[in-house]
């Protein structure tokens, strides 16, 4: 598919002076649902894992350098498996590295929350907590996926996500119920993250198509369990759950924040400077 087609730019519906100006599509054209779905799962983990890896050597205590690196390793490892599956489903010979290093930002399908800059340690653990809570319940559901490869990834990832959730929850409680400064910092981080949480549960025609095949589940059931865990941890952390205002969307169809471009320009720089090279 040509780049202009995929982006839904008009290819000739209306002519003015011989050049097309009016297009049929107002949004991006998506690939096959299974490919899109696997990219969404894979990109979430690749981009969040990348953000976590930025902490390596800069954590507040040595033990956290180790823990954050551990989580980065788990997530990037999951991403590699998921992107491999996406490449196989796509059937155009792209492997996980081709997908990670040679797609432009508009082709990435991660939720916006993942790409936000790492912020302070409070922001990092709050985001990790919100995402891990979603991941635990999602992986639990995907254990029964009709997609064998995906169920296989879920079997390994569920253990990892449970550890991430436990670790991040402990820190949210510690920081929320720590000093007045730490309380303010994590409350602010929570407020900042909140408007991106809706996208973690949003469903469009891609999700509906894969859910119809038993590949994934209705996100509403996952949302309900997420709400419970979030309420419980926030209560223990003496934090206030923000009100559900307008939610930010767009990552799932490639409409990202400005932050993703900068992340990718770093991540892809060496690979792209040497086309065709093996590493």
């Amino acid at each position: 598919m040509a780049e202009s087609e995929e982006l839904g730019i008009a290819t000739g519906e209306a002519q003015a002076g011989g050049r097309a100006v009016a297009g049929a599509s107002r949004g991006p054209v998506l690939g096959p649902p299974l490919v899109e779905y696997l990219l969404r799962l894979g990109d979430d983990r690749l981009i969040l894992g990348h953000r976590l890896s930025e902490w390596c050597g800069h954590g507040p205590i040595l033990e956290e350098d180790i823990a954050l690196s551990n989580m980065a390793l788990d997530l990037i490892g999951q991403a590699a498996s998921l992107l491999r599956l996406a490449g196989e489903a796509e059937g155009q010979g792209r492997d996980e590295d081709a997908l990670a290093y040679w797609r432009d930002g508009v082709r990435f399908r991660n939720a916006l929350l993942m790409e936000l800059p790492k912020g302070d340690f409070g922001f990092t653990v709050v985001r990790q907590f919100l995402v891990s809570a979603q991941s635990v319940f999602l992986w639990e559901a995907l254990l029964a996926s009709t997609h064998e490869g995906l169920a296989g990834v879920a079997a390994k990832a569920i253990k990892e996500a449970k550890y991430h959730l436990r670790h991040a929850s402990e820190w949210v409680v510690r920081l929320g119920d720590g000093t007045p400064e730490s309380h303010d910092r994590v409350q602010r981080a929570l407020d900042d993250c909140w408007r991106y949480t809706g996208e973690l549960f949003a469903q469009d025609e891609v999700d509906a198509a894969v859910a119809a095949l038993g590949i994934t589940v209705d996100m509403a059931s996952i949302r309900a369990r997420w709400d419970q865990v979030v309420d419980d941890v926030l209560q223990r952390a003496t934090l206030t759950r923000p009100a559900d205002g307008p939610m930010r969307h767009g990552g799932r169809v490639g409409r990202h924040t400005e932050h993703l471009g900068h992340l990718l320009s770093v991540m892809q720089s060496v690979a792209r400077a040497h086309p065709g090279a093996t590493w």
Partner: peptide, 30 residues
């Protein structure tokens, strides 16, 4: 010693290399 190598984690040119570099720097912390 975590710093000079940590400097390239975000730019490792393949996912396999990225994983092994993070693991290496993590070992150094350990």
């Amino acid at each position: 010693g975590m710093l000079p190598e940590g400097n390239w984690i975000t730019r490792a040119p393949s996912l396999r290399r990225k994983l092994s570099l993070i693991a290496k720097v993590q070992d150094e912390a350990g």
